[in-house]
Amino acid sequence: MNKVYIYKAYERFWHWTQMFIVFLLLFTGFEIHGSYQFFGYEEAVRYHEFAAITFLVLVVFTIFWHFATDEWKQYIPTVKNMKDQANYYLFGIFKNAPHPVRKTQLSKLNPLQRLVYFGLKVVLIPLLIFTGLLYMFYRYEHQGAIESLNIDGLETVATLHTLGAFLIIAFIIAHVYLITTGHTVLSNLKAMLTGYEEFEDDNEVEKKLTASQSAEEEAETVNE
């Protein structure tokens, strides 16, 4: 078994803070949406706005970090190995096949992760932030009394913001499940907590490869 340092301290801090804030945003957001009552509408709005501003601060810091450390490059989508990774999730994983892409400190994301996280960071979160800011700072044009963002109605902004929120939920569900697909069920989670992730060492990879190949052959002979 190998242990590799994957997630740096800031990254872990950022990840867990973001998780907490996004949960708060979701929970208060859907209360504002009218889906249930928990904090009370007034409080939900207050918490949502507070969480949103905290989130913005975190996002600004994190963007800075990504560029300062060149980590942003990890999110550039690539098609290399993408098919292998898809094959792994669709077939290999059931046969205990080895992971097709090795995680290293320089490449912590597999090609599918790159694509999804890229979408998250470039489309979904900016969508939520942009519509959220409009939601927060739009003003009715009113006899010149307040001059800033003038919008005729909230409908489009709110609808897009809500759509984003639903997609975030879907992302979280898939995300939470996919972290169980590491070397062991918990190895990804541990990595985000401690920074170190356990991987198959070369021996294990070898073993898995032969095992899954022989399983395939077996299956073929059965088919015959």
Binding site: I32, H33, G34, Y41, G153, L154, E155, A158, T159, T162, L163, A165, F166, L167, I169
Partner: peptide
């Protein structure tokens, strides 16, 4: 005549989201 948070929602988005 207007969208009010908590009262209004887009039926399509809510169904699609679910």
């Amino acid at each position: 005549g207007f969208y009010m948070p908590g009262r209004d929602f887009n039926t399509f988005v809510d169904k699609f989201g679910l």
